[in-house]
Design a protein around this nucleic acid. Sequence first.
DNA 1: ATGAAAGCGCTAACAT
DNA 2: ATGTTAGCGCTTTCAT
Lengths: 333, 333
Amino acid sequence: MNSLTLEQIAELAGVSRSTVSRVVNGHISVRPEVRQRVQQVIAETGYQPHAAARSLAGQRTQVIGLVIPRVIQSLFADPYYSLMIQGITQACNQHDYTLSLFLFHSEAEEAKLFPRVVGARLLDGVVLASAMVGDPFITQLLASPMPCVVVGRPQDEAASYVDVDNVAGGYTAVQHLLNQGRRRIATITGPLNTSAGQDRRQGYGNALRAHGLAVAEEMVQEGDFTEAGGYQAMQRLLPLAPDAVFIASDTMTFGALQALREAGLTVPDAVAIVSFDDLPMAALATPPLTTVRQPIRRLGATAVETLLAILRSGPSPPRQVIMATELVVRGSS
Amino acid sequence: MNSLTLEQIAELAGVSRSTVSRVVNGHISVRPEVRQRVQQVIAETGYQPHAAARSLAGQRTQVIGLVIPRVIQSLFADPYYSLMIQGITQACNQHDYTLSLFLFHSEAEEAKLFPRVVGARLLDGVVLASAMVGDPFITQLLASPMPCVVVGRPQDEAASYVDVDNVAGGYTAVQHLLNQGRRRIATITGPLNTSAGQDRRQGYGNALRAHGLAVAEEMVQEGDFTEAGGYQAMQRLLPLAPDAVFIASDTMTFGALQALREAGLTVPDAVAIVSFDDLPMAALATPPLTTVRQPIRRLGATAVETLLAILRSGPSPPRQVIMATELVVRGSS
DNA sequence: ATGAAAGCGCTAACAT
DNA sequence: ATGTTAGCGCTTTCAT
């Protein structure tokens, strides 16, 4: 079906190579009738341009990378990533870009693959997700000339990024609990070396302080965004007898619910819970979760679109998009 | 850091372009001292070959594709995919291949992207996952000259594939329930247009028949591998008062447990459950799940390795790998 | 063992 | 509006 070249199409259509190239790339300066004829031949033959030849001559690959540095393995299993990837692929498909996936399992892999990611010119740009603050890969990547959009809030404020307003999300969650009359409000945070972990914890503190309450450090337990981590963090919290917990992800909440069940505590009567994400499973939990919804798919799609905008019109000024969250009230609070 | 070309490295090392190329590609016919000198220069300069130029001249891209046709969106959120992707990326990283991800959200996208996947020569080969039986994309793909390994059991027996023994897995699960003295054993199947759905259901039937029991069609409820689907299927099963259920995926089991809780039925006392996958969450459920473990990561890695074997030594004979499952007994049975 | 040279299939600047 | 031409950076015969 296809090892035709531009040259052959040109011959079949009785025009030059350049004209075919112009048609393929949608340039304007081609007479409609000629364009028509060429398109006809292309359709009949099933001609498909050779990607490598195009990249070589044209200096762009139409490929972008999704880079996920050193996720803890169980963390990547969070449906969060699947949803983000769905948004990313959808945007790529729509804009005729191909997505390459770089998932690193160790620092050694990061180091080994870094040159290939930035040096082999096989990527026009990169979406960087779920980076731990201070990961050397990110630092290097942002310092390189490779166009890059971070999903999350990078330390480097000159970087382009797409994020949800995690501080506001955390604030809203805790405010909701306060409004319900809860006062012994604990939190299970995400990893505090991620921006999402930090920011949601910040929102928790802000809300308490806004209501004249102090943050008790023992009421703040760090989790790791996994179900097992949520379970353990909740167990550490139980002796403190909180009447509510803000948990920084739905997945951790599933683990925390388990710990509460084992302790014989009912939700929301004994302990109210608000969590974060609104995964598809959140509505199906027992009880259904009150949770701060973030638009995960759109986050992924927006990251791609932001990257494409940078590819079109240059890296400056950095593009920074903050998306809103929305509190979804269900049975757990 | 890098827009060096082979030519420049050659000059710096005082050799010809060809020699540098030989060193880069590990050919034998280079004097050790020369090789050394060239490698030195490469290391010092951080030279990285240009991927597109290489592909164009060398006829191979060192990129493979992971193609997932038309998943229902919520299905892709199953941690199963994350785990498989982890195995796939790990194998790719190890063998210096890049992975491109093609995730289709509609038949229109499949049709639009098919020519790019097989025609643009940007892929050396393809791993095809989670295909529905009879999906036109698969038919076309297997008919094309693109080297391909299916994860699952394709209809076309001439295709190369990697799968777990789903029939045996289902059999073992149900046999376990029979051994516990259960007799009213129902099943919630996967989608019956997938090979995994079909085969696990087959194993269920085989086990019943082996014990002299007949399959009652109303005890077989089709699910869709999602939690919501499991919930609904279990609700349909409740009026039939099964004393055990074999559920074809852990994710569906989470939904089914919810339905049982709402009905006030205890697991395993009133209803015993065996499911399939052994996701990380399975051990944390209430109760912990008895489940048929399948080596999801290794499945992904093996698919890649099988594909690379085909790339090395041709498509025939088709390579077909069947991996074993293992029953993990926990609290739900 | 090494170098010279001919492409791989395309884009884009230039010429017409 | 269209054709001509010079690369893009590499691999791979073919000489030597």
